[in-house]
């Protein structure tokens, strides 16, 4: 799980172009949206694309996103359970 969390942090930094942010700067238990990293709705779309592209996970219900994108750890757990690649 820790390996996946690190990989996910690196992917998030790259896809969201989080300049000057290093994986260690991201608290895997902190909120991704609002507080914490302060991501917004466009970032949510980018994360949906990332999940499908890199892990083969297609979010059918957009409402799921609210729960899945709670933190990097929650996202990593969801990916570990549902990934197809």
């Amino acid at each position: 799980m820790e390996k996946l969390i690190l990989k996910l942090k690196e992917e998030i930094i790259e896809v969201l172009n989080l300049q000057d942010v290093k994986p260690a700067d991201i608290d895997e238990n902190a909120a991704l949206f609002g507080e914490g990293l302060g991501l917004d709705s466009i970032d949510a779309l980018e994360l949906i694309v990332l999940m499908e592209k890199n892990y083969g996970i297609k979010l059918k219900d957009p409402a799921q996103g609210k729960e899945i994108f709670k933190s990097v750890r929650v996202l990593a757990e969801y990916i570990a359970e549902n990934r197809t690649k």
């Binding site: 896809v15 466009i42 779309l45 980018e46 694309v49 499908e52 592209k53």
Partner: peptide, 10 residues
């Protein structure tokens, strides 16, 4: 490259 799928919104 990605066959008109999975396009980044930004």
């Amino acid at each position: 490259r990605e066959g008109e799928e999975l396009l980044n919104p930004t």
